[in-house]
Structure formats: structure tokens, C-alpha cells
């Protein structure tokens, strides 16, 4: 089953990637080809192959519940620099919701 232009538009929307109609027209068929290429994997008979959860094949890697001192002071300048804006020790982000109704 091929990916339609609408599918790709929706994926772009979910991933917050803005595409112009031209870009969409250009990219949608390409993405469809890529998906088609890996779709072959689904046809392999895998009834007796357990799904691979992790390349290492290990389970139960855990840490003890112990609070460790965090070096937030060292981190702070990096955060302030990377944040869209910084105010009152916090990340300042643009308004989240548009007015409803």
C-alpha cells in the first residue's frame, strides 16, 4: 500500500515539519519509494523468530534508587544558551495554545 500525499502531509504535521505544497509534491513520492524499499522485510516469514528488543540482547539493566548530587550549576550556562529564552531560572517558551472558540 502506497503512502499518499495526505499521509505525508499528516506525518510532517505530526513531526512539526513545515512543508510547502511544492516540497510536499516533491517529497511524497520519494518517501513512498523508501517505505516500499523496506516493506520487503515484512514479507519474511518470521513466525518462529522472536522480535529483537535490543541489539545487545540483555534484560534488566537497572540502577539502585539513590539520589546523586546533580551538577546543575555546570549545566546552567549551557541551558541558558540553548533555551529559546531564559527567565527566572526557567526556560521561557512561546504561548502554547491559541485562543479557543
Amino acid at each position: 500500500m502506497g503512502l499518499t500525499r495526505d499521509d505525508v502531509a499528516r506525518l510532517a504535521d505530526l513531526a512539526r515539519i513545515e512543508l510547502t505544497p511544492d516540497e510536499l509534491a516533491h517529497l511524497a513520492p520519494q518517501i513512498d519509494v523508501i517505505v516500499e524499499a523496506v516493506a520487503g522485510v515484512a514479507e519474511v516469514k518470521d513466525d518462529d523468530i522472536p522480535p529483537l528488543a535490543h541489539p545487545l540482547g540483555v534484560v534488566n539493566v537497572r540502577r539502585a534508587d539513590q539520589a546523586l548530587p546533580t551538577d546543575w550549576q555546570a549545566l546552567r550556562p549551557v541551558l541558558e544558551q540553548d533555551a529559546p529564552a531564559w527567565q527566572d531560572d526557567r526556560f521561557r517558551v512561546p504561548r502554547i495554545l491559541e485562543e479557543e472558540e
Partner: peptide, 12 residues
């Protein structure tokens, strides 16, 4: 309220 806020501050 979230609907009419100008911006938001995030504490993680």
C-alpha cells in the same frame, strides 16, 4: 490560564 497566557516558563 493557558488559553490567554503570553508565554510559559518551564521547570524540569
Amino acid at each position: 490560564r493557558i488559553q490567554d497566557a503570553d508565554y510559559s516558563l518551564a521547570d524540569y
